[in-house]
Amino acid sequence: MRVVMVEPALTQLTKLTAHETHRLDRAIVAISVKPILGTQVPGTLLRDYADEIDGVRVIYYVTALQTITIVEA
């Protein structure tokens, strides 16, 4: 599984602390193992994944080639 981040997500990433980055990494690994984890956002191709324990929310979509594209982290 390939994970790509669009520009807004990359910009957000530069503002995270090391601890926040670690928590986000855990969420991205979970999504890459099971891309259907997130809830479908009605009327879009987007999925919304929230990890309440780590306090992380990721908005993403999965392409036809199984690339996970992170829109917002």
Rank of each mutant, 00 (worst) to 15 (best):
E72D: 15
L37T: 03
I59L: 01
D54V: 07
V56I: 11
Q66N: 09
R26H: 09
G38F: 09
M1D: 03
V6Q: 09
D51G: 01
P42K: 15
M5N: 07
P35V: 00
A73W: 08
T14E: 04
I36D: 00
I31F: 08
L16Q: 06
T63N: 13
E52G: 02
P8K: 01
V33N: 03
L46N: 02
R47Q: 02
L10S: 03
L10N: 06
A64K: 01
S32E: 07
I68L: 12
I53L: 12
V62S: 12
T17R: 04
Y61V: 06
E72G: 05
Q12L: 06
E20Y: 00
Y49G: 02
Y49T: 10
I28P: 00
E7M: 04
Q66C: 09
Q66R: 11
K34V: 03
I70D: 04
G43E: 01
R2L: 13
G43V: 08
I59R: 08
T39H: 00
V71Q: 07
Q12M: 10
Y61P: 07
I36L: 12
L37Q: 02
G38P: 15
Q66P: 15
A73M: 11
Y61K: 08
L24S: 01
R2T: 15
L46H: 06
Q40R: 15
V6R: 15
A50T: 13
L37R: 03
A64C: 04
V3C: 11
V41T: 09
I53H: 08
Q40V: 03
R2E: 15
R26D: 04
L46I: 14
A9N: 12
P8Q: 03
E7P: 15
